[in-house]
């Protein structure tokens, strides 16, 4: 059976893929469906959902269209989640490969630095970084990656330690290849899969961290974010709970979708690898 068919036969994976597809679709069509500034005033304040079909999910305290904000928030969540996860995997793979391949003092130093980053709770690290440098989308991405890269670094290092003993690495040395080329061209690509298998968890965690930063007012102020929407709705939690509940549900479904789809891909491809 092909991995795709096996994936399609796993209900959780399919559910995850549908959620993820919906999120991506929302992110892509947001500017088409809701052109213009989603933070502009669109109607009366605090309109409840399902009352006015031109504003299906109602409006917030300032009269902004909740549905438009939700769609544009999907863009931010997805962009930050993917960019932060990619940055964390890239930093982690490079550090882990250098440590595992070089060994000795280089390994010692790099792994101490990795320990240090891993000891500090990653959310605190992100919080501190954004507080000092100031909130913008790029800074938020870096802040999240800073706390996330040690995991992929450890995984890459463990993989490199086993790969570097293989004959093909000895062959590369024997033909006179430069050690850096061996590390990054011969070893690193083969050390990537276990880290990539973790990427759905990393993306999901990054989306949550971004939401938490935005909730605390440390997100990019020029963008709509789900975390920011929840924080905004908190002021009127008793009178208009939907303002917090709607972005909250979106967040939960997104994280669930990313996680389930990612796990589905890993499971189905891992089974295939086991069979061949």
């Amino acid at each position: 059976m092909s991995p795709i068919r096996r994936f399609l036969r796993t209900p959780e994976a399919v559910a995850g893929a549908i959620l993820l597809a919906a999120l991506i679709a929302m992110a892509l069509i947001a500017p088409l469906l809701f052109p213009g500034d989603p933070q502009a005033i669109a109607g009366p304040a605090l309109l409840p959902p399902f009352q006015d079909w031109s504003l299906p999910l109602g409006t917030d305290r300032l009269g902004r269209d909740v549905l438009a904000e939700l769609f544009h928030g999907a863009r931010t969540s997805l962009a930050v989640g993917l960019a932060a996860a990619a940055a964390a995997l890239a930093i982690g793979s490079v550090v882990g490969t250098l440590a595992g391949f070089a060994g000795g003092v280089v390994d010692e130093v790099l792994m101490r630095i990795t320990d240090a980053f891993q000891t500090v709770p990653s959310f605190l690290l992100a919080l501190a970084f954004v507080s000092v440098v100031g909130p913008s989308l790029g800074i938020v991405v870096i802040a999240i990656a800073l706390g996330t890269w040690p995991g992929p670094a450890r995984i890459a290092r463990a993989e490199v330690l086993s790969i570097r003993e293989r004959d093909y690495v000895a062959s590369a040395r024997a033909i006179g290849m430069h050690p850096l080329e061996i590390a990054f061209r011969e070893v690193l690509p083969n050390a990537l899969p276990p880290g990539l298998a973790m990427s759905s968890v990393i993306v999901a965690a990054a989306i949550l961290t971004e939401a938490a930063l935005s909730f605390l007012g440390l997100g990019d102020p020029n963008r709509v974010t789900w975390g920011g929407m929840i924080a905004e709705g908190r002021a009127v939690l008793r009178t208009a709970p939907f303002l917090s509940i709607i972005p909250g549900i979106a967040l939960v479904l997104t994280v669930l979708g990313v996680y389930l789809a990612g796990e589905g891909i890993v499971e189905t491809t891992a089974v295939r690898r086991g069979l061949s």
């Binding site: 004959d167 093909y168 000895a170 062959s171 024997a174 033909i175 006179g176 083969n190």
Partner: peptide, 23 residues
């Protein structure tokens, strides 16, 4: 210097699959 001199001294391993990068 060592890497350059390696051109003169080559090797063939037992397991021809393990001796190449799998990619």
């Amino acid at each position: 210097t060592l890497r350059a001199r390696r051109a003169r001294l080559q090797m063939v391993f037992q397991d021809p699959l393990a001796a190449f990068n799998p990619r």
